[in-house]
């Protein structure tokens, strides 16, 4: 009766593709609803820079073709869908000869590395703090100190980022203020490079972990307090079990389930990067790329990044759906 069935897998994967199709369609529709013509805007921008441009009308026409903006709307849509299916995200409007997928491939590893680590660290620390805050047996001293760790939650992470740069980069000079690795270091799997990456990643990661930890902690605390009143917790107590076993297997193990769902969603949104953190630390990830796209009204770049975001979220939800029954036995692969 348990176990992964073909039926379940097919339904979930179908759902995955429907989600992506819907997302892609939205990305197609929304910019076209917005007023203005990106190509005309670009040409007029060029005009403003270079003065008069000859044959501007023809140029606009040519560029429209280049970017698939000619022809009736349904034809545009079909072409767009074909390029989405082949993961052909087109040329960047602002950095013209560069292709969007190349820019994303360059930026994605940085973001995924930084944010995955930061999110996981924040998840583990936050949940542990939250669980300890709720646990009856937590020593009083620790219980009183724990809320202090959450004060950073009320500070916006970009503010904390600026604070960290000021403190640890400019005043103390322990960490570099920007970039992902030191100049002149050979990129590759060598110790120098890895050390440099960790060195550069510490401050951005810290600003994310410190500020987002509270979110996990408060959720976990609430779940644990609800849990404490459950009959199985009282029975666990009556059984005279080791308090740590009660804490882990009866407390955290049952309280963490909704948190795992939230984790999957936030891991999924990583593909979009953390724009402000990456901007402040000039970290060459997706967020920084998105910032550049917005500043330059680079529609294709923005579309590409948003599409990656949709892809990432849908993928992590799919993985979550496949993994959840392993974590919570009450969820089965059965329908219903």
């Amino acid at each position: 009766m348990r176990g992964l069935t073909w039926d379940y897998l097919i339904r979930r994967v179908a759902m995955f593709f429907v989600t992506i199709w819907l997302g892609a369609t939205l990305i197609f529709i929304i910019p076209r609803l917005a007023p203005g013509d990106p190509v005309a805007a670009m040409v007029s921008r060029l005009q403003a820079q270079a003065g008069y441009i000859e044959n501007s009308a023809e140029m606009i026409e040519a560029w429209r073709r280049r970017f698939g903006l000619d022809g009736p709307i349904w034809l545009q849509y079909l072409k767009y869908m074909r390029s989405v299916l082949t993961l052909d995200l087109g040329y960047s409007l602002a950095y013209f000869p560069s292709r969007v997928e190349e820019m994303i491939v360059d930026a994605l590893p940085w973001t995924v590395g930084l944010l995955t680590l930061a999110t996981l660290m924040s998840f583990v620390l936050g949940n542990l703090i939250g669980a300890l805050m709720a646990w009856r047996r937590t020593p009083g001293l620790i219980r009183n100190l724990l809320p202090l760790t959450l004060t950073f939650t009320s500070i916006p992470f970009f503010m904390l980022g600026i604070l960290l740069i000021y403190l640890f980069a400019f005043t103390l000079d322990w960490f570099p203020p920007s970039g992902a690795y030191a100049r002149g270091v050979e990129i590759g799997l060598n110790w120098e490079f890895i050390k440099s990456v960790i060195h550069h990643g510490t401050l951005p990661a810290l600003s994310i972990v410190l500020t987002s930890m509270g979110f996990w902690a408060l959720g976990m605390r609430g779940m644990m307090i609800t849990n404490e009143g459950e009959d199985y917790m009282i029975l666990a107590e009556a059984k005279g079990l080791n308090p740590f076993r009660v804490f882990w297997k009866y407390g955290i193990r049952t309280a963490v389930l909704p948190q795992v769902t939230a984790l999957a969603l936030s891991l999924g949104s990583i593909a979009g990067g953390s724009t402000l953190v990456e901007y402040i630390f000039a970290y060459p990830g997706m967020g920084y790329l998105l910032y550049q796209g917005i500043v330059n009204t680079d529609y294709t770049l923005i579309q590409g990044i948003v599409f990656m975001l949709i892809l990432g979220t849908a993928t992590s939800v799919l993985i979550l759906d496949l993994l959840l029954p392993l974590i919570d036995p009450r969820i089965t692969y059965e329908r219903g």
Partner: peptide, 20 residues
């Protein structure tokens, strides 16, 4: 506890740990 005195709880429905 349990070694000398044990409990059959009121709400057996919710008295077992759902994930074990």
């Amino acid at each position: 506890r349990w070694d000398k005195i044990s409990l059959i709880p009121q709400g057996a429905m919710n008295s077992l740990n759902p994930v074990l």
